[in-house]
Amino acid sequence: MPAAIETQELTKDFLVGFWRPRPYRALDGLTLSIEAGEVFGFLGPNGAGKSTTLKLLLQLIYPTNGTARILGKPAGEVEVRRRIGYLPENPYFYDDLTAEEVLSYFASLFGLRGADVARRVSTVLDDVGIAAERRMRLRGFSKGMLQRVGLAQAILNEPDVLFLDEPMSGLDPIGRRQVRDLILSLRQRGCTVFFSSHILPDAEALCSRVAIVVQGRLVANGAVSEIAEFQLTGWELVAADVNESLRSSIAGRARKVTSIGAGRFVIDLPPEVGPDRVLAELAAGGAHIVSLNPHRETLEDYFIRQVSAAAPRQTGID
C-alpha cells in the first residue's frame, strides 16, 4: 500500500523583486513520507515554508523541483482531489453566498446530487457547529466562523487525506477543542490528517508524528516525544498551607521557591528531581497541592535556537 503522502526533494523557488526578479527558495528539498491513518503535524515558525508545502501538495503552485504524490498518484490529479480535503490558511469564500450555498456548490463539485447534497451539507454544518448560521451570507461571518466554514468544506467528501493549514487560527478555546475532537474522530475513521501549525500544544495533543521545518528546510521528523529538544526542562508546583519547616526542607532541592502569600508557594523543580517525592512530602506535612505543570521547551524556543544556529540566510540561490 502506497504512502498517503509522499514527497521527494520537493523544492520551490519564488521570484522576488520587481525590476530584477531573483529566485527565493521557499522550500528546499523536502522529502517526507506519511502513512495512511497518521495525524501528521507540520510545524514551523511563520514563513518557514508550511503553506508553500501545502500548496505544492494541492498543486496550487508548481514545484521548481521534486515530486509530490498523494495516495500513490501525482498530486493535483482530479482523481486525487476527489479523495482529499483542504482547509486553506485564513479561508475566504464568496461574500454574497450563504454558508449553505457555498457548501452545496462544493458538494456538487464532488459529484453529489440532489438530496444527497442537502444531507451532506447539513451533516458537516453540524460537525463544525455553524448549523444555526447556515442561511447567513458569509459577508457577515467572523474569522472564527469562516474558519469553521473552511473546515466544513474540507470534510465534505469524507476525505481519505485531509490537509489543514493552521486549523486552529482564529478559533476560541471552545473552537480549538471542537477542531481537536473533529480531527481525532476523523483519525478513528482512518483519515490521514496533515496539518500545519506554529503552536506546539496543538501538535502534542493530536499527532502521531511531527516534522519541523525552518527556513524551508526539514530539521526534525519523528514522534513528539522522540524529538529530544522538547524534553522536560523542569516542573512548576503550586502548593497551599505550606509551613515554614516544609518550605525550608524543599527549598534545598528546588531551583527557586516563591511565596505568593498566605502560605502559598510556587516551587520550581529541576527536571532531575522529579515531583513524586516532593508531592508525598508536601502531603505528609499537611500542605495542599494546587497544581503541577511540567515545563518543556516551547516550539518557539526551539525555532529561535534553530534559526540562530542556522547559517545566515541567503536571500538568493546561486
Binding site: K55, L58, Q59, L60, V78, E79, R81, R82, I84, G85, Y86, L87, P88, N90, P91, Y92, F93, Y94, F106, L109, F110, G111, G150, Q153, A154, F163
Partner: peptide, 12 residues
C-alpha cells in the same frame, strides 16, 4: 481573495 484555494482543491 484566495477563495480559489479551496475551489481548486476540489475535483475541478
Amino acid at each position: 481573495r484566495k477563495s480559489i484555494f479551496a475551489l481548486l482543491a476540489k475535483p475541478v
